[in-house]
Design a protein around this nucleic acid. Sequence first.
RNA 1: GGAACCGUAGUUAAGUUGGUUAUAACGCCGGCCUGUCACGCCGGAGGCCGCGGGUUCGAGUCCCGUCGGUUCCGCCA
Length: 585
Amino acid sequence: MLKTVRRTNMCGSLRETHIGQQVILQGWAHKARDLGGVAFIDLRDRQGVVQITVDERSPQAAKDMAATVRQEFVLEIEGEVVARTKPNSRIPTGAVEVVATSVKILAGTQPLPFALGGDAQEETRLTWRFLDLRRPELQSKLIARHRAAQATRSYLDSLEFVEVETPILNRSTPEGARDYLVPSRVHPGQWYALPQSPQLFKQILMVAGMDRYFQITKCFRDEDLRSDRQPEFTQIDIEMSFPTSDTVMEVAEGVAQAMWQKVRGEDIGEVPRLTYTEAISRFGVDNPDLRFGMELSEITDVVADSESTVIQGALQDGGIAKAFAVPSGATQSRKVLDKWTEFVRRYGMGGLMWAKVGAEGWSGSAKKLFTDEEKATIQETIGAKEGDLVLIGMGQAGHVNPGLGRLRRHIGLQLDMAVPGQFAFCWITEFPAFEWDEDSKRWTSTHHPFTAPRASDIALFGTGRENEIMTDAYDLVCNGYEIAGGSIRIHDSEVQSKVFTALGIDEEEAETRFGFLLNALRHGAPPHGGIAFGFDRSVMLLTDTDNIRDVIAFPKTTKAQDLMAQAPSVVDPEQLAELHVKNTK
RNA sequence: GGAACCGUAGUUAAGUUGGUUAUAACGCCGGCCUGUCACGCCGGAGGCCGCGGGUUCGAGUCCCGUCGGUUCCGCCA
């Protein structure tokens, strides 16, 4: 307890046990109701709201002052806690009220730009973030975030992980996302980059013998935003020496368990594991939402000999056919099905074949495309029964899988198939090391270039079969969000060089960009691996929101602006001159 | 880089096939009110209809562009 604070209690903490006590409260006037002879003020602080009563028991000065109080004035109230004659069961403090002996206005306010309790547009709320943050819903999310961070620190500390800070002003490593750059004043023409993650530094800390490291730290990526992506975001970054992938996954499950236990009082339970290949096959995506069924089934073989030109057209050039059943989906309207068709087109699918299973067979766009035998086999494969909806997609795997996979989750959410408050975790493991990038005509890292290939696959380098190389990487997924991802790293500079070569980065370039890491790997690097949690996304799940801005105190808009601070902004030409930078626009 | 939705008093919304002075609620200002908790009652102020152009006798409404917010695709090792 602090000895020098003036207030005696928090508004939201007062209960019947406080009756008879003299208290001093400080907070905001949530609402003021002046009835003439008696006035009520709902006084709010972080803990909650309590009713202040100013009536004939109060001195005239307090009554005069109370009459001038408006919403969101900052007040100091002295008075006695008394039982209410008419309790209010809707608020926790509703059994009591404080009869004021003194009402002091510590600060007034200009008229409010929006109603705090209402549903103002996000643009307005972001501009006036300090007012928006007064809302209990947002405060509780920030408090949950704090608790999750505390739980993480405490858990990792108990396993002797050491929190080490790594640089924010960093070297640009142009693999991956676009960097945020900071010009150097003392080195004209040279630039720092803000870290996309502390990846290289944490590996070097392992070489340095720190054994177990973690950090809750900001990362920066200058890419376009989404409802779950901000240009600066927070990672729980973890790395350890001498682990197997199981060891890292055990630690990560422990972190998730600690956060969920501390914030929600819940166990995360057994976390099932799926390989990447299995996840794509069954769910179309590598971040499946396991709160509902509707698994995808491949039916390419079933329809391969179809005489339909539509189907043959879709299957040419190695196209595939996949399907799933929506339980009781036959009630969906044509309008909804058109929307779903439009939905999958975004992922490159030509369209969606659908059929409602009725007593007299199929009806809908897929009715005439299939023979009765094909229909029966499809129905049996995906487990569709009367009253269900059959959805079928055909085309290139790279379109069908994400199209149907995303549609599956979209439908699950839209039809409320997920039980509120339910969390379905899973691990996705064994990722391919490389993906072919059509634009640049080269291999790119699925995870990042420091992920260790399986020892048995190292012989495949340089054979043109790089796509078959698999890694010891693992993603932790919850309710369709990837909340953590990691891998066992390369601790051998020879292997690291092979990976760079496969990525089209020659030796000289590798030395220039990553020389400090390669050098470290040549000087006694222990086997090591780690993982990083997307902390903001984890807190989103913990606080039941799908908007990342809700869990960040001062977030940015989708155009990466801070509407309150008005960043970014123009700067003085003198500042630019000092930095040897010239604007071209 | 692309697509969709949105933008009207401080706020949230309404505004008909283009047609007098652009409505309402909350908030704000003034007055009244002794048990409210969405307090109530009376009165008042408050508008570059995001911005720019076009069509028209006439535009909040139609067209084009632009800016901003959100969501999605691309992107995000």
